[in-house]
Write a protein that binds this DNA or RNA. Structure first.
Lengths: 247, 247
DNA sequence: CGATCCGTTGAATTACGTCAATAGACGTGG
DNA sequence: CCACGTCTATTGACGTAATTCAACGGATCG
């Protein structure tokens, strides 16, 4: 799928316009160029362990990763899914509360933590962009809380598909209105979908099957066809029709 | 309860050491002083409406508020509870995705949005602190996702009590180890607890009753006694004992 | 003193979890 | 090419935690 061979320069970087560096000018970029390095990881690699103080701040150039919290008895919840241009890390010497693990082969653009903190002070357009992106992450986490707190299993699965479709097709045009067919490669197994949606693997599987039976989605296990995005959106439950039997 | 009469100066401000201004020096504080104003709201007041572009960025000096997302069919989820020193707002012209509403009479220290954005550029210790606090909010939202995705009703209620106890007794000392008795005034009704924990009012009420019956908590409806914090912590399910019957 | 709000409690219902068996998909080696 | 093991996904039958529906009790207030 994504080509990981070539180490891009910032100029030609695929995430140039969306990553934490997005707002930097040519001169500011030079400061980042000097400090950055690349790291390539296979699928299933642990990037950050829970409790670890990460040595680097990094951005996903290509690939994907999950942010996971695990209770001591083993219950797992994915609290984030990271796609290209998303960052991993937090300024300051904080132990990570999460495990970060690649879902696929992944290329990172990384900065040693101290160096990144210095850049935050020195490169004026970096901190505002980090603030902006962190607020977006906060919105995503709160949206997940709504999904987990208030939505049915079917709505959760539909919501995940909506979110992944929106993110992977980086819609400039409001996709919300598009009725045109659309395909989506799922980066997650059924078990991982369950870990993200607070469900069991069986329920995740059943709901995928039900959505398919009802014609909301098509395609294969990992490659989902969305014949009518608006329909999927309605199934996700954020758009106005109460689930059957809601008071 | 909290005294809202006196408008404090920054020097004597009760949230001086924890709010977004916490890292500012005496001189930086002067710039904030010049731009700030106060606003007092009764309980149940809407501070920000969903979809609105807020005109101000504000900090809670005293009181409390909820951050709520409502689905179009009326299902509600509190995605945050704000206590003194927490901020409300986001730099940039973003429509709020949430409703913010006071839980009790509340005093705000506020800045007109444009003025706050200028301060972010000009007062060096402001942006790093905002980043720090936003990451903390992100952690809280993700923690909530874990609670909503993976915990039982009893664990959810216990988790909320733990979180409120930790926050309201601004533990410098690790409260996690304290076995000493402790009291907590609940800022939330049973219905509001349910809205925060993704439960119904009946389930919230039943679980409170069950925790009381089992001696985990005592006190009255709104004033909770916690005879043994460690015990409550265990009930919250983050500390190692699987709930009965977990695979 | 009725009205309203909030909390509690009981009984019936249900969505999802649990347990269990089977079916594909994919790779390895004979 | 086929037999076999492994891993993931699917499907069925059953159990249960939480919801739903309903009734009631205790404050608070005009």
């Amino acid at each position: 799928m994504t080509e990981l061979r070539a180490i891009p320069t910032c100029e030609g970087c695929p995430i140039r316009l969306n990553a934490v560096c997005a707002d930097c000018g040519r001169d500011e970029l030079a400061a980042l160029e000097a400090a950055k390095s690349y790291r390539r990881l296979p699928a299933g690699a642990t990037l950050v362990e829970e409790g670890e103080i990460p040595s680097h701040f990094s951005s996903i150039v290509s690939g994907s990763a999950t942010v996971t919290k695990t209770l001591k008895d083993g219950r797992r919840q994915y609290v984030g899914i990271l796609l290209p241009s998303d960052y991993i890390g937090r300024p300051g010497r904080h132990a990570s509360l999460y495990e970060v693990r690649t879902l696929a082969e992944t290329l990172l653009c990384q900065f040693e933590r101290g160096a990144f903190e210095r850049l935050l002070d020195e490169v004026p357009r970096l901190a505002p962009r980090l603030i902006e992106m962190t607020f977006d992450e906060l919105d995503a986490a709160r949206e997940l809380a709504v999904v987990l707190g208030r939505k049915t299993a079917r709505e959760r699965v539909a919501s995940l598909l909506v979110s992944l479709a929106r993110r992977s097709a980086k819609l400039r045009r409001p996709l919300s209105e598009a009725d045109a067919p659309l395909t989506l490669h799922l980066p997650l197994s059924r078990g991982q979908i369950a870990d993200h949606l607070g469900l069991t693997i069986e329920t995740a599987s059943r709901q995928m099957a039900a959505l398919k039976k009802d014609g909301v989605i098509g395609g294969t296990t990992r490659d989902i066809a969305i014949p009518n995005f608006r329909r999927l959106l309605l199934e996700a439950g954020s758009e106005g029709n109460p689930p059957p039997g809601y008071r």
